[in-house]
Design a binder for these strands. Structure first.
Lengths: 174, 174
DNA sequence: CGCAATCTTCATTAAAAATTGAACTTAGGC
DNA sequence: GCCTAAGTTCAATTTTTAATGAAGATTGCG
């Protein structure tokens, strides 16, 4: 008669039992999840980041999966997102196969990276679209007030693009 | 043998047939929908705003519903959101029952309103949470580096709250 | 090389969020 | 004060988004 215990996610063979999050880790995760939500970052990503953030040592794949009781797929995708946005660093000691991860020193820089990748492309891709709208409106001599509104929108968009591009540091290419 | 035409949303009785959006209106809507997505605003709300934005005259409830082929519920909720965030104004002529809506002059102010209502509360509510986490970590003498990280997070959070509260104008109470 | 261990991909499933519409409330004209 | 047009609410449904996990790719050690 097995106890109806929580089933752990599919693990690799012979994995140690990772302890569940301590209360203060749960609370910190709540913080990162909410912040992530504002930026459009998914829960699982925020959870991984939080775990690494509260960890004195870099953690490896299995450790993350174990402690968060999360699927391999989510861990893999989550680490990819965090890597791609320069939010975590790989610490690979020589002679070991497996990578271990820690948060990048500057959280601020990380946030900026996320913002850039979310906002800038949208702003940029909107430019031609707004131009089209303005052209159409002008061509069919729409109401002057409406035309002026759209023109304002366009000017505002252009300035936003320039400003963000200037303000936000360029992506690190490696 | 009725043609299998697009069924319009449930309307009130005797409603005029509202024309579908013109191509340039569709494109503008795309813009507002994408921008809205960044700010966590739902599609239907962005659609309504876009329609009003491109309209030379204020529009009433049924007109909005008709042109967007949207349910009454969505129109009502959408207008409520836009009202609550100071993004639209009611133009009610005397002797008429029905309200008509137009966008507020300053889109910038509207955006700031949305940002405040999304971001500030989250930042503020996080304060005690972060304090708890810091206390726990200190109490159980966690790794000094981790403690320092959390402290940094807390300081950063505090500054963010102050800054946004200062920068973003207070809500208009009426 | 070969072969595990490690990680990634992506079709499927599950969870979350937005939309609908019908019942209900409110407001104003008569 | 009633009656109807106007608008709101919210449980049910649809749509969208995220998480899962099994099959496939990669890596590096022996």
């Amino acid at each position: 008669m097995k106890p109806p215990s929580e089933k752990p996610r599919g693990k690799r063979k012979d994995q140690p039992a990772y302890p569940p999050l301590a209360p203060h880790e749960v609370e910190l995760t709540g913080f990162f999840v909410k912040m992530g939500a504002i930026l459009g970052v998914q829960r699982s990503v925020a959870e991984i980041y939080s775990l690494l953030y509260a960890s004195p040592k870099p953690l490896d794949f299995d450790h993350i999966q174990g402690r968060l009781d999360m699927s391999q797929g989510s861990v893999s995708q989550g680490l990819k997102f965090l890597r791609d946005h320069g939010m975590i660093l790989s610490i690979k000691e020589k002679g070991t196969k497996r990578e271990r991860w820690e948060p990048t020193p500057s959280l601020a820089a990380s946030l900026v990276n996320i913002l850039r990748s979310h906002v800038l492309p949208t702003l940029e891709k909107s430019k031609p679209s707004l131009q089209n709208v303005l052209n159409s409106a002008t061509a069919q001599s729409a109401d002057p007030e409406v035309i002026e509104r759209i023109a304002r929108l366009q000017r505002w968009n252009s300035r936003a693009v320039e400003l963000s591009a200037l303000l936000l540091p360029p992506p690190v290419d490696d």
